[in-house]
């Protein structure tokens, strides 16, 4: 998934960690929206975290004699954020446009076809199901090409296909676990957002990190795939009722992503 796409839907972290944890640790009931909004700081876990960090900054800044710097940051960082968005606006528009052209030309479908045999080795049980393999390879291709807007709905489709192929259980199959790991260890050919930021900060060759990025992404992917094979443990099918409840709760957290 493209960096900017993921962050556009994911501004805050602490509260979401609790929510996500509740999805994966079924011993605990999912934390409901209500319970979070009833916490003292109003905004739930994230609000609490932000309140603590700002208060700690004020107190520590006053003690360390950095109060004027803290004040300057509190006043000026918002325009800094606006300028950053403006700087990234051009990059984002350019590559969204180029990606749209590439997609329309069938470049995504072509690359997906090319990748299918390799991905078949990764997902041996899904290989026999053509529909599943097509969804997986389209998603991986979109990630590689930096088509963040396309990768997520394709990935969700792939997950649903994998679930169908695996018998519709509420526990992740080996292929589902591996597919999520492949997606969290994103491998992107052109990290355009990062390069744009480097360019703005005066880097003479913002893309000179490319080989290092590829090596890092590839190594991280390899480690993730091996770890997914090692960590996978079979769990018996769970009661579908509970799964649906938490599943729809998790879906509700992120709203309707695509129309």
């Amino acid at each position: 998934m493209d960096l900017l796409y993921s962050l556009s839907y994911y501004p805050f972290f602490v509260k979401d960690i609790f929510r996500q944890a509740s999805v994966f640790f079924s011993e605990y009931p999912p934390i409901s929206r209500n319970r979070l909004s009833q916490t003292r700081f109003g905004g739930g876990g994230t609000g609490y975290f932000l309140a603590v960090v700002t208060a700690a900054s004020l107190i520590y800044g006053a003690c360390a004699g950095n109060l004027s710097a803290v004040s300057a940051a509190a006043l000026g960082e918002c325009s800094h954020a606006a300028m950053l968005s403006l700087e990234l606006l051009g990059t984002l528009c350019l590559w969204s446009g180029v990606s749209a052209v590439a997609d329309e030309c069938g470049l995504t479908a072509w690359t997906a076809k090319l990748l299918a045999p390799v991905l078949g080795l990764l997902f041996p049980t899904a290989r026999r199901d053509e529909k599943v393999m097509k969804a997986i390879s389209m998603n991986v291709t979109a990630n590689l090409l930096g088509l963040g807007n396309a990768a997520t709905p394709l990935g969700i489709k792939a997950m649903k296909e994998l679930k169908r192929a695996g018998g519709g259980l509420s526990a992740a199959t080996k292929d589902m676990a591996l597919f999520v790991v492949v997606n969290t260890a994103s491998l992107q050919i052109l990290p355009t957002t990062v390069a744009a930021l480097r360019l703005n900060e005066g880097s003479p060759a913002p893309m000179d990190i490319l080989p290092a990025v590829w090596l890092t992404g590839g190594f991280s992917l390899l480690a993730g795939v091996l770890a997914a094979k090692v960590f996978y443990r079979e769990t018996g099918p769970r009661a579908e009722g509970g799964a649906c409840r938490s599943g729809s709760a998790a879906a509700a957290l992120f709203g309707e992503e695509e129309p």
Binding site: S6, D16, F24, G155, A172, P191, V213, A250
Partner: peptide, 28 residues
């Protein structure tokens, strides 16, 4: 390099598992 070569792990996992209504990550 870190920004380019890694991903917002928890967000991605939550979206995919949530959409497929999967409760047990089984090591993912």
């Amino acid at each position: 390099v870190l920004m380019g070569g890694t991903e917002t792990t928890f967000y991605t996992a939550a979206v995919y598992f949530g959409a497929a209504e999967v409760r047990k990550g089984n090591g993912a």
